[in-house]
Nucleic acid binder design. Structure first.
Lengths: 230, 230
DNA sequence: TAGATTGTTAATCGATTAACAATC
DNA sequence: TAGATTGTTAATCGATTAACAATC
């Protein structure tokens, strides 16, 4: 058995899924080995980073040759825990909840949506092959379906109370699409996907570009024009 | 005019939207000032970080008192470029595209969805008050509607060619929901929202928890049980 | 004045990167 | 052997955090 388990940096953990996707693609094309250079290109990072990241998994490359694609896939699956089945519940079956319930990439690789919950009229309807349960039954559903990951796709106002119930029901992994910062006790992992945050970050960079290289801001530019026009 | 424009760290830029949301909430409740302590609590970070982050905007706090909520809102809007109107085009009107087109939080604060594009049967239909255009007209739509941000919500396979067209059409800010790493020329900003990556990161931490504090892995635990049972 | 809270410094920590010896 | 490529070191960079003087 190769020696382990040296702590893996968060930044590395966040990149492993990218490598994994690229590797699975290569495996489908029957490509047997890959260099750090090539893998870096596919994942959009640099080669030194790839090698450093992969070194945390152990020594699975061959000098002068590269990495065995299948071996690397197995190792990343092991590290990320993709060999287990993860049961996912989506709470909040609005537009986004529908999208998530139907999202194919979800089902792949160990993740399975096993429950849909909502508080509105959609309860009882079939969505993506599942009957939508009432959020009133949350605790039962979590227990019976052995849910290990909850996805919150409700409006902002409902998210925190819902989160509290999920945590009370034993959930320790939450993917939050609601535009609120969830407060959770230690040991509960929350990942946040936030549309308007992403847009605002893009807006910042847009602004930077049009403001020019020197960091001149829009107001200053406008002012300069006014002065010049006089 | 307060002095500027010292470069703002990326990590800070990524947190400004969180502060902004919390501040807008406070403004709605007519709360005039806020301490770094309180703002930190709402944003889920620590107070030292809040003060450091806000110091990049300039000195807008008052010792012994805190920060003026309205002033801070104005400053963050200025820095993030939220005072301008940003026109957004959503490409790919499947389940997710529908969700994005209808997403209210989108519209708020400077962002407006002005165009929906697709390559399928949905072209010509009305979605969220807009008629879906054919992706064939992408270049025209970008020009006529002055689109500055594109959101890609297509299947993975369509994303890169689409991205190339968007870039050729002059788009420099892209929010990508497709599960691929987009290759773009320098100067084009891509933010990625990736469901399966987020789930995999959660899975990693789930695994860590059940493996125990010492980093023992599941296989080793299973093995130990087998040994013990003999 | 006394209490509160900012803004900044400096120490620490974690992540990135280039470089290259090891080795296939 | 010669060429290729890993795995690791060490330098560098950027982000976090505690601490506290400044000051309202």
């Amino acid at each position: 058995m190769p020696d382990r388990p040296r702590r893996i940096p968060e930044a590395t953990v966040a990149r492993l899924p990218l490598y994994y996707r690229a590797l699975v693609e290569m495996a489908e094309q029957r490509i047997p080995t890959v260099s750090s250079e090539r893998l870096a290109e596919m994942a959009g990072v640099n080669a030194a980073k790839v090698r450093k990241d992969l070194s945390y998994l152990g020594s699975y490359g061959t000098r002068g040759v590269g990495y065995d694609v299948e071996v690397l896939i197995d190792q990343i699956e092991r590290i990320l825990g993709l060999t287990r089945r993860h049961s996912v519940a989506v709470v909040g079956i609005g537009n986004l909840g529908h999208a998530l319930a139907n999202y194919g990439g979800f089902a792949s690789r160990g993740f399975r949506v096993v429950a849909l919950l909502d508080a509105g009229e959609v309860v009882g309807e079939k969505v993506a092959g599942l009957t939508v349960d009432s959020v009133d039954d949350l605790e039962n559903v979590v227990k019976e379906q052995e849910v290990s990951i909850a996805v919150i796709a409700t409006p902002g106002g409902a998210a925190q109370p819902l989160c509290d119930r999920l945590v009370a029901a034993g959930i320790t992994s939450i993917l939050n699409f609601a535009p609120v910062v969830l407060q959770v006790p230690e040991g509960v992992e929350v990942r946040k996907v936030d549309l308007s945050t992403e847009l605002q970050i893009l807006a910042f960079h847009e602004q930077r570009k049009s403001a020019g290289v020197l960091g001149v801001d829009a107001d200053a530019v406008a002012q300069a024009f006014v002065e010049a026009a006089r």
